[in-house]
Amino acid sequence: MITLKGIYKYYDSKFQRTFVLKDIDLEISEGEFVTIMGPSGAGKSTLLNIIGMLDEPSEGEYHFLDQPAHQLSEKKKVEFHRNFVGFIFQAFHLIDEMTVYENIETPLIYKGVKSGIRKGMVAEMLDRFNIVAKKDLFPAQLSGGQQQLAGIARAVVGKPKLLLADEPTGNLHSGQGKQIMELLSQLNSEGITIIQVTHNEEFARFGKRIIRISDGLVLSDDIVSDTNEPN
């Protein structure tokens, strides 16, 4: 599903070139649940943004669903966002002036889903994530956990093949974090490929594969053994 070959990301300033990612080679198959770990500034989020086509590599090739993503036009990338990719953020990033319902509905509007069908799809999400009662509230009126539930609902309402989660539990307390991770596991078991970035070792093991990076380099790429799976 995802193939990264020799990916570099760097920024040129007047006198020097600062590398964020160096020679990343990576293959991720459909249905995987991958965790990316590493210290702050290691390049985790940049890697996630490149995979999510929100950022472009400086060098290298990136193939997504057998398409050369590094060569895709903006229009094509938008099409991929609409149909195949969902994003979950640490800071939830719900749109403040929209209600929960409207936030979840937004990707469907951009996707061009008709109003009647949209209503059904949003209602299904509200029901599934247990936030029906919150549908008319604005993000500021919700707890962190509730906001993240709404964020996940918004990410998956368009039935993406790939879910990218950038520290999805970073702003939550452990109880809420665990609930979110269980939800992600469930989504993965339903066939959605998930790539998450986290600092949390316990939550990292919800993934089936852990990639550790540091200073822009892949240090290790390990399969999580059953015995290592969280309780």
């Binding site: 999510g52 929100l54 938008v78 966002h81 990033h93 749109i95 403040d96 937004t106 990707p107 951009y110």
Partner: peptide, 16 residues
């Protein structure tokens, strides 16, 4: 600026 990014992540085109 973040709102622009969120819309884009949700599939918004420049014209949206």
């Amino acid at each position: 600026a973040k709102s622009s990014a969120i819309h884009k992540a949700c599939g918004a085109e420049a014209r949206n």
